[in-house]
Design a protein around this nucleic acid. Structure first.
Lengths: 153, 153
DNA sequence: CTCCTTGCAAATTGTTTGCATACCT
DNA sequence: AGGTATGCAAACAATTTGCAAGGAG
């Protein structure tokens, strides 16, 4: 059976904890991996997994996402649109940069991702002064996008 | 009647929109103002307002918070604990610095606020490159707190 | 007097849980 | 075999909505 890095890591972590490798768990992780760029809701993950495995239940998806989160194989993001979102974890994301940086327009609601390299200095500062080991972050700037700034005049 | 700055601004904004000044609206804003430091859930606001005005309904609190949010008299924060929180808006917060900066420990769940002065450079960079006007922000760092880092060894 | 606003209860939505059955190891 | 995991349905919690009655301008 073909088996990529994520799946291997999943199997390892499950074994460590005495938990079982199931098709559902593998599929949920693999869907998240295939949609590496996007932030998926549990419902969306459910929809995608259902294509390969129609018998799966939504509750299983929730339980699995929770489990994967604890194992740090997935990350959780919240864009204030009323539902929690998930994406493949920072450990598995490879060279793709973290993209939990968003500009949220308070006027039109648009969500614009942006590059957050500048946060690295800040993270280092936190590690030094607070003794807190930063693994990941979520940064949201609220304001007005270019178009809405113009429209306001 | 005694009337502070927040209330005055509220009256103005309501008049502008052709909406009415009600005791409920004034009370909700004033509770948020009195609890300037803390992030309150709708339920908590409801509890506080009820002390002065027991007849108020929870739905009204939700509707009012929504309205105040649109008028930018209150801000919304999300600490991933399952409920949305509100606090007096950045426009009314006066000299008190924004405090939407948190370190969230993935192991013990502790939430530690920290000082975010260092973000100002980043905000300026965004205004320049993206044309996005930043009004407020919410920054969360996920990782392990000092104690949990130690415990892990 | 008119239309906005409220309180209440019912409806929704996202998520969790209980339980008998099915499946890994 | 033995305990873990699953699917389903029911339970929950936070928030929203419909509607008749009340209140502000």
């Amino acid at each position: 059976m073909e088996q990529n890095g994520s799946e291997k890591l999943l199997r390892e972590k499950l074994r460590e904890k005495g938990l079982k490798v199931t098709r559902q768990r593998i599929l949920v992780l693999s869907v998240l991996e295939q949609n590496c760029g996007s932030h998926m809701t549990a419902e969306e993950v459910y929809g995608q997994v259902s294509e390969d495995y129609p018998e799966i239940g939504l509750a299983t998806v929730y339980r699995t996402l929770q489990l994967l989160l604890e194992m740090q194989l997935v990350d959780r993001i919240n864009l204030d649109d009323g539902c929690v979102r998930y994406e493949i974890g920072h450990l598995l994301r490879g060279n793709a940069k973290h993209n939990h940086h968003h500009l949220i327009c308070r006027s039109c609601g648009k969500v614009i991702p942006f590059d957050g390299d500048l946060l690295e200095g800040l993270e280092q500062h936190i590690e030094e002064t607070a003794g807190f080991h930063v693994q990941d972050h979520e940064v949201k700037f609220y304001g007005l996008c270019r178009e809405c700034v113009k429209a306001q005049k």
